[in-house]
Design a protein around this nucleic acid. Structure first.
Lengths: 224, 224
DNA sequence: AAACCAGTATAACATATGTTAATCTCAAAC
DNA sequence: GTTTGAGATTAACATATGTTATACTGGTTT
């Protein structure tokens, strides 16, 4: 779909890669940010710390996702980001992003699509936090991740990788650790999901979509 | 700051304006969206409807704010938008947005800043919904609106315009109508805010910032 | 001026979720 | 092969928030 020249430029972006250890921050809220990051391998979280160890995870970044796309050449980060798993990133100068998207309209459209998508994902997060019950939040998040993986993997069956701890899940879904555990058990007991180390199996996707009011339309593939 | 030519183009965008009555939708979730809207006058809300009349308001759009900035020429809206007050909008073809931002790098940087800001505002909304108590949510939202108005008005004193009903506030903050009323009373009783029709007075901004863990850094002015 | 209606206010009660604390599991470290 | 510690599980209890219902307020319609 892309021309050779376009692909060459995109690959050129990956010249400057770095690895980040698990639990290590690579974007720090309120600090200077002059870099755009593309996730190549692993999971990252965007989050914000509140007082006394309280934390809100805002979103997950998976391979192919971009962090800091709208950094001008000087900006202050409005969130922190850290590696949930060992992470491989490409670090790109935001001026190069602009330059490339001006040269290649299709890439520009792709970036625009990325932005709209990230926006939709964060909107879904607000819906979860604002209007869903604990069980619904869990189901809704699993469905989001399952749909997102469906777009970057060949066949993921009914399994979703869940590398985060229940503490992380709780901080994502705005609930306590104990209640997260309770609600997860309740989903298990209802037969809706099966849980094993680092994976969750969605036993009845249709029922999960129904009970959590998930809208798959928010996560569709890029098309121009 | 901008050249004459730049200003001329920006004003050209306002050729195609429209007015929207209170409570009327102009973007409908899951429907086709081919237009970018700039708010010229009034308030809009972005929201999503759930089953049985439940609703989550995602954000407020004030004069100068842009909706649907990252619509490619064909897209499906992932949220609805409607007029909270009588509204005046500029409707812009997203292709023109791209064209103009390619011609004028400063405008492109401004749009990029708009996007980052909208993102930060939605992140703050997630923090409110996920990790703040009812009283904190109210205070935090008032502070957000107060700071945003401070950037577009000369002097707004300690007053914030609040054209929304308590039903709207409840749907913004993910709480019930009754509890919204209760918590608002509690803020009043504590002397932190004074409420009169369509306005709230922030009696002690510093205390409100402290008690709601508001971060003013997320809402700074555009600078290049 | 009576009737109406959207919005606000308050009370009484129900429940989902938070808190504290104790135990259990299992893989990594020594 | 013990020890250790992070993570998961469960119980008992506390509380913030939701629900239902009723009344109040003030502007608009007739």
């Amino acid at each position: 779909m892309l021309s050779e020249e376009e692909i060459e430029f995109l690959e050129g972006l990956q010249n400057n890669t770095l690895t980040v250890d698990r639990a290590q921050d690579f974007i720090v809220e309120n600090a200077d940010l002059r870099t755009t990051f593309i996730v190549i391998e692993g999971w990252a979280i965007r989050y914000s710390d509140l007082s006394t160890g309280r934390r809100q995870i805002l979103s997950y970044a998976l391979p192919g996702d971009i962090l800091g796309l709208h950094v001008n050449f000087r900006a202050t980060a409005t969130y922190s980001a850290s590696a949930l798993t060992p992470l491989k990133l490409a670090a790109v100068d935001p001026r190069r992003v602009i330059e490339i998207s001006q040269k290649f309209p299709i890439i520009a459209a792709g970036l625009s699509w990325c932005t709209a998508r990230e926006f939709a994902i964060l909107g879904d997060q607000a819906i979860r936090l604002g209007r869903l019950s604990a069980r619904q939040r869990l189901a809704h998040l699993f469905l989001e991740l399952w749909h997102r993986f469906a777009l970057i993997e060949n066949d993921n069956g009914n399994w979703v990788e869940i590398p985060m701890t229940q503490r992380d899940l709780a901080d994502t879904l705005g609930m306590s650790l104990v209640h997260t555990n309770r609600s997860l058990k309740s989903l298990r007991d209802a037969g809706l999901v099966s849980v094993s180390k680092d994976y969750v199996r969605l036993n009845d996707v249709k029922a999960l979509i129904e009970m959590s009011e998930f809208n798959p339309e928010h996560l569709t593939e890029f098309q121009i």
